[in-house]
Amino acid sequence: MNLFRFAGDILHLLSILVLLLKIHATKSCAGISLKTQELYLAVFITRYLDLFWNFHSLYNSVFKVVYIGTTSMIVWYMRRHRNVKLTYDRDHDTFRYLFLVAPCAVLSLLINARYNLFEILWTFSIYLEAVAILPQLVLLQRTKNVDNLTGNYVFLLGLYRAFYILNWVYRFATEPGYSAWLVWISGLIQTGLYLDFFYYYVQAWKQSKKLQLPS
């Protein structure tokens, strides 16, 4: 464990909490993609299946439970809460799950470190996490005017990924024999997806203007 990894995990948690608190406080999920949230829930469940028998550290176990729990709450709010569900922008959140899930499933069967069920599910979760933000980015693009909290949510998520890359660089430099190609490449692709958003986020911040994405 190094400081970059720790910062990454905290930023990840913070991004989820920002979203959850926004929904809870405003009783609105306008601008939030349910597709992305459900994909993240699928990512967490398939990756953290080992929670019950593969104890690594209390730190990891607590984060796993918190990530699954908080993301479940967001999905619950968006699907079931009597006021929140009315604010869900379903007409614009039309990205197809299958376009992301199917290629990730096929890829995890073809490229994995070990051919067994849990390893394949773990690999699937790595691939799926890399692209799970796409429905949210498409929704932002469509609605143009991005409210502050939604913008901050995506920014914090991107920052979390950037810190994971720093963590890998640090580990590569300090841990003999450390390598994780599958995770690195997926992680680089995932972080790359945020670059465009980052550009507009920083521009808006520099000009103290409301974040607006171009068409």
Binding site: R5, D9, H12, R47, D50, H56, N60, F63, K64, Y67, A113, R114, E119, W122, Y164, N167, V183
Partner: peptide, 10 residues
């Protein structure tokens, strides 16, 4: 790597 894969990151 040998044996069961260990995934120490989240």
């Amino acid at each position: 790597a040998s044996g069961q894969e260990t995934h120490d990151e989240l």
